[in-house]
Simulated assay, not measured.
Amino acid sequence: MSTNLAFKQEAPPEAPPVGAKKQRRDWTSQVKLVPGLVLLGIVFGIPLAWLLRMSFNTGLAGGAIQEGLSFDSYATFFESAFNLELIGRTLLLGLAVTAGAFLLGYPLALFLLRTQSKWKSILLVLALAPLLTSAVVRTFGWMVILGDRGIINQALLSIGLISEPLKLANNELGVTISLIEILMPYMILTVATGSSRLNDAVLEASATLGGNGLRTFFRVVIPLTLPGILTGCLLVFVLTISSFVTPALVGGGRVFLLATEIYDQAVQSLNWPLASAISFILIALFAGVLVGYQRLMARLDWNRN
């Protein structure tokens, strides 16, 4: 007599659908963003909302403010040829400083990225050391250097290249020179950290395929470091057009930009609605630059893929 023993095999627990797991993960990630979004709303959103509301008021004589919803401040700004010139001058300064910071900072960033020296870490610290010093302190230093009795003029006078001091301060030239030095570490840091795809293997492959130094630089080095270049240019440009301390001090009150005009309207003329309107015009410039940057990066990613 044979006995058949049947063993009941338990089915394994069903795994949750892939879509449900992904949805739960996305929901968890969104919840984690809530504290940061709330903090940003309190620190940035509320002040910006108050500033926007102030820009629609009307400034009266003596610093009085007439509550209302009016575009008088914006109309006053755009009706003035001087104010329109401020926009152009601010943008030109941003382009000049960005170009100078790139031309001087890009070679340094490549050197720090490619060097095999044992002093590499020390050199990197020295390149970024100016960021540890206040921009106000460095601005005062440039006021001394670029002055009529500064190091540059005294050196040129002593060797007989000039007969009278050059006008390097209290003008846009001095502001441009100062901002290039002050903001160049941002360019160096951004290019160096955003060029991780550039390595020895890529350069050796280019040399193997017959690329000389110049061709390798333009067809390999520049494309691989382009994301870092664009990010560095964006950072320097935005910091330049929003800078106030350096243009006010080195410019000696003779260099007029959007940032200095905001200060003059808010502190000297006590026209807070107009100062708020100019602030949002400057924010609009920021937004336009960011949109252009995003499109360039999207096109770069599309070409890469």
Score class of each variant (00 low, 15 high):
Gln9Ser: 12
Arg149Asp: 14
Ala192Arg: 10
Arg114His: 11
Ser117Thr: 11
Glu79Thr: 14
Ile281Asn: 01
Pro130His: 05
Asn153Ser: 05
Leu161Cys: 02
Leu249Trp: 07
Gln265Ile: 00
Ser2Met: 14
Ser242Ala: 09
Leu51His: 06
Gly41Lys: 01
Val220Phe: 07
Leu198Gln: 05
Ala169Pro: 03
Phe140His: 14
Pro12Arg: 05
Phe286Ile: 11
Pro227Glu: 02
Pro165Lys: 07
Tyr186Ser: 09
Val38Lys: 07
Val255Met: 04
Phe71Gly: 14
Thr139Gln: 13
Glu172Met: 09
Leu166Met: 01
Phe71Ala: 15
Asn171Tyr: 04
Glu85Tyr: 11
Met184Glu: 05
Asn271Cys: 01
Thr98Lys: 08
Ala129Val: 15
Trp119Glu: 05
Ile42Arg: 10
Ile46Cys: 06
Ser121Asn: 13
Thr58Pro: 08
Leu84Gly: 01
Ala61His: 12
Leu108Asn: 04
Asn170Phe: 12
Gly59Val: 03
Ala298Val: 13
Leu131Thr: 10
Trp272Ile: 12
Pro227Gln: 09
Leu257Tyr: 09
Ala207Cys: 04
Leu5Asn: 12
Phe71Glu: 09
Lys167Met: 00
Met54Trp: 09
Ser163Lys: 10
Val43Tyr: 14
Phe217Ala: 04
Ile152Tyr: 04
Leu296Gln: 13
Ser2Phe: 15
Leu86His: 08
Cys233Lys: 08
Thr246Glu: 05
Leu123Ser: 02
Asn170Val: 00
Val255Pro: 01
Thr190Phe: 01
Leu230Tyr: 07
Leu146Trp: 03
Val238Arg: 00
Gly211Lys: 07
Leu285Glu: 02
Gly210Asp: 04
Ala61Arg: 14
Val144Arg: 10
Tyr74Ser: 07
Asn153Lys: 04
Arg304Trp: 09
Leu235Tyr: 01
Arg114Asn: 09
Gly19Phe: 08
Ala277Asn: 01
Arg25Asn: 11
Ile180Thr: 03
Gly174Asp: 07
Arg138Thr: 10
Leu40Asn: 10
Pro17Tyr: 00
Ile180His: 02
Thr246Trp: 00
Ser196Ala: 15
Ala287Gln: 08
Leu69Gln: 15
